[in-house]
């Protein structure tokens, strides 16, 4: 079963996403901050990361930069409740594989996750 990590500073959102992914047959774990996730990912690396953009302390963009700095090619779906015109490009340039606006379209989210989950093993074998 693919393992998905969720990072969002807002508890109700975190909880709801974890439920949705679990109900869709995925294994999901959620984290309240980028820092919490980065620490935990050292122990168990998820197949895909669902990452909120606007968070106090460490933003989603910084998490992407940290992952890149650590040469961790982790498929990441960035989600955000508010964005500016250039945000999408910034995230994709920083290594995000998909960029979705909240409230999340369930199909788009699951498609983005499954596309990455399927693709990532191939990439790893290359």
């Amino acid at each position: 079963m693919p393992y998905i990590a969720i990072v969002d500073d807002e508890e109700p959102v975190r909880k709801a996403l974890k439920r949705l992914l679990s109900a869709s047959g995925l294994e999901a774990e959620s984290y309240a901050s980028g820092k919490d996730f980065l620490e935990a990912s050292a122990l168990r690396r998820p197949d895909c990361l669902v990452l909120d953009l606007h968070m106090p302390g460490m933003s989603g963009l910084q998490v992407l930069q940290e992952l890149r700095a650590a040469h961790t090619a982790l498929p990441t779906v960035v989600i955000t409740a508010y964005d500016e015109p250039q945000t999408r490009e910034q995230c994709l340039a920083a290594g995000a594989s998909a960029y979705l606006r909240k409230p999340l379209d369930e199909r788009l989210l699951l498609n983005a996750i499954s596309a990455n989950v399927k693709r990532s093993p191939k990439e790893n074998h290359r």
Partner: peptide, 18 residues
């Protein structure tokens, strides 16, 4: 917009999970 989208996200994702 951010403040309204957050609860809307929670509502939608919860409902779809159900």
């Amino acid at each position: 917009a951010h403040q309204l989208n957050q609860p809307l996200t929670a509502i939608l994702s919860n409902a779809q999970a159900a």
